[in-house]
Amino acid sequence: MKIKTAVALGLVSLTISGCGTLNTVLREDVAATRELRKQKTYCASIPRVYSGVAFDFCLLHAAPDPTGVLIPVVLADIAVSGALDTVVLPYTLYRQVEYGNIVVYR
């Protein structure tokens, strides 16, 4: 039973961790902007460099979450996204120079 619980917690943490980075680096820009619009963020664009952290801050800069579940998850994700964003920094620097910011609202 303890092994199943540990595996389940591991899978949940892997799913949650780096969510901002996964949304902005590994997916198309449209998917990231769709997610931010769905959360009704007030951000107009986010930079590609450290985009996972920026994505998470945009989630915090959105209409209030009535359930209150989003804030602790996003705060935990900021640290993990920061680490993952550092790993992919050379790639995101290139993408920032080549394509500019990810535009959420025009």
Rank of each mutant, 00 (worst) to 15 (best):
Y50N: 01
A31C: 10
Y50M: 13
L22H: 08
L26E: 06
L70F: 06
A32V: 03
P47E: 11
R27Y: 11
R48C: 07
S51Y: 03
H61D: 13
L60D: 05
A54T: 00
C43V: 00
D77Q: 05
T41H: 06
A79P: 00
V73K: 09
V25T: 11
I71K: 13
I78V: 14
L70W: 09
G68D: 11
D56M: 07
S51T: 04
N23Y: 13
R27I: 01
V74A: 08
V73R: 09
A76W: 12
S45V: 00
A62S: 15
L26H: 09
A63G: 09
D77E: 08
K38M: 11
V30F: 06
A31I: 15
A31F: 12
S51E: 06
V25I: 14
Y50R: 06
D65V: 04
I46T: 02
I71G: 00
P47H: 07
V53N: 05
S45T: 07
Q39Y: 01
C43G: 10
G20T: 09
Y50D: 01
G20C: 10
A31R: 15
K40T: 02
F55P: 04
T33Y: 01
P66V: 08
F55E: 06
L60N: 07
A62T: 03
V53I: 14
V30T: 15
A32E: 08
P66S: 13
E28M: 00
K38G: 00
Y50E: 01
G68N: 09
L22F: 13
P72F: 04
Q39W: 09
S51L: 07
V69H: 08
A63E: 15
V49L: 12
I46S: 04
T24Y: 03
C43P: 00
L36V: 08
V73C: 10
A44H: 15
A63I: 12
T21N: 08
P47F: 00
Y50S: 05
R37Q: 14
A62F: 06
F57W: 11
S51R: 02
P72V: 07
Q39T: 01
T41V: 15
D56C: 13
T41G: 03
C43K: 14
Y42A: 14
I46C: 02
Q39I: 12
D29W: 01
L36G: 04
L26F: 14
V49S: 05
A44W: 11
V74Q: 03
P72W: 05
G68C: 10
L59M: 14
K40V: 05
E35Q: 14
I46M: 01
T24E: 05
V30W: 10
V49T: 14
V73G: 09
L26S: 09
D77L: 06
E35S: 14
I71V: 15
A63Y: 09
P72T: 06
P47L: 01
V25Q: 11
R27M: 14
V53M: 10
F57G: 00
L26A: 12
